[in-house]
Amino acid sequence: MRAGRDVMKPAVETNEDVDRRVRVGLYDGLIRTGSMSSAAELAAELHADVPVVMESFARLGASRAIVLEPDDPSRVRMANPFSAIPTPFAVTAAGRDWWGNCIWDSLGIAACLGTDATIRCSCGDCDQAMRVDIRDGRVEGSGLIHFGVPARHWWDDIIYT
């Protein structure tokens, strides 16, 4: 498997090595192209066998490093803070449009990219449009962030959470 950014390829790869390379490759590809790679696309990018990437996806999903599509383990739904599919949280940052999984993750996209960002969403109650900006490391906007699920239950159903 080809070594990615800042990831030296050891002589013998452990599952941990493979998972690190797959995870970093997934994020690098997402940031480079704006879309989440499938197992086949990532395998081609990393010069790896598709089953190797699929097995890594399964381990990364089990360890909650990523969230796989419920009915397709070859695709990633969430590489938090990024969502592979449209959500009510649209984020513009680093010259691209992204989808956050929730307001926390939308702020997280700005943190992960280390850039300014604009988040467009709406009030969870009345649907009024809301906007939050990150400028020079500071958050600008108004509103209250609300978590409806207690922390220890977030991963009971992470897509709902």
């Binding site: 929730c102 307001i103 926390w104 993750d105 702020l107 969403c121 009030c123 969870g124 109650d125 009345c126 009024q128 809301m130 939050v132 958050v139 906007g141 108004s142 509103g143 209250l144 962030i145 609300h146 978590f147 409806g148 207690p150 922390a151 959470t161």
Partner: peptide, 30 residues
């Protein structure tokens, strides 16, 4: 995790979804 205009809107959402307890934080803390 959603964004609401204020606590009043968050409370209405909790009531509509029959959620007794929620966790809130400011945008700055978030």
């Amino acid at each position: 995790m959603l964004l609401f205009r204020d606590e009043g809107h968050a409370r209405k959402w909790r009531e509509a979804h029959r959620i007794d307890q929620g966790g809130t934080m400011t945008l700055q803390t978030g």
